[in-house]
Design a binder for these strands. Structure first.
Lengths: 140, 140
DNA sequence: TTCTGTTTTAGAACTATTCTAATCTGTTGA
DNA sequence: TCAACAGATTAGAATAGTTCTAAAACAGAA
């Protein structure tokens, strides 16, 4: 009865995804989905859930993140070698990547046009189009 | 006097980039630039240079790849967490990424249109726009 | 409750990459 | 030509992020 959430609560969200609503997954789902759109790394989320006095192991954080991606609740964004971001916004959109700060900023799908996409190589089908606009601190 | 190369030879290419033309860098530059456009990982290039009976340490391969990127001879493409690709095509273009095979395929810059790019966040300037079209083996 | 399959966990293992400190090499200038 | 020095290379250790393993804990069904 308060925020604009796609599901009534984390429990229902997990049930809909066919994931058993364990304490750990509930805690993680709440952190991820009870705020607006977020871009988190596994380490960040792990730190948050520990701070929230709900100890969850790092392995479980990774497991849950991947299960959420598999269930379409989360999207993995790759911008940096050796570190994955998980995006709670799974609608059609793209990203600014602030290289200095290591931060992602959403660009709504309708705020950018990608046209004339050539046909994919023979025997393959397009799964997704990712546009990443890398920005840097403006030279003084 | 044979192939279509942007520089007469690896030696001149390194000199122009302000890099001392050592044996190792010459060997790597030849492998990278004497063929057409390539997308290699550090490990792949290391394996190639060893096969070519010119032992070069992995650390040197990484050093050289980064120096080549810094000199604008190479471009780093990030599509996978935990593995970098280096692209010898530094002109304006984009990529198909064949997820099953882990292969990159160039899309010439003029074969795709990215329009209406929104203004970058305050205080930042666009450094590069990357379009990655992820494709998968066509479902049978 | 008890049972069963799933989930969680600590810690080890793994992969890609970077660092370190010693050795070597290319270039410069005498 | 050669000495000297800055820069480059190297093996191996170290690091970061992630995945794996095997054992213990748990959720849900009966």
């Amino acid at each position: 009865m308060s925020g604009p959430r796609p599901f009534a609560n984390a429990l229902e969200l997990l049930r809909n995804a066919g994931l058993r609503p364990t304490r750990q997954r509930l805690a993680l789902a709440r952190l991820l989905f009870d705020q607006g759109d977020r871009h988190v790394t596994a380490e960040q989320l792990h730190a948050e859930v520990l701070t929230a006095s709900m100890p969850v192991s790092l392995a479980t954080v990774y497991n849950a993140l991947h299960q959420f991606v598999g269930a379409g609740l989360l999207r993995e964004v790759v911008v940096n070698p050796g570190r994955s971001y998980f995006d709670t916004n799974v609608s059609d959109h793209h990203h600014f990547f602030l290289e200095d700060a290591g931060k992602l900023v959403d660009i709504p799908g309708d705020r950018i046009d990608v046209a004339n996409v050539p046909a994919p190589p023979a025997g393959t089908a397009i799964r997704r189009v990712d546009v990443i606009i890398r920005v840097e601190r403006e030279p003084a």
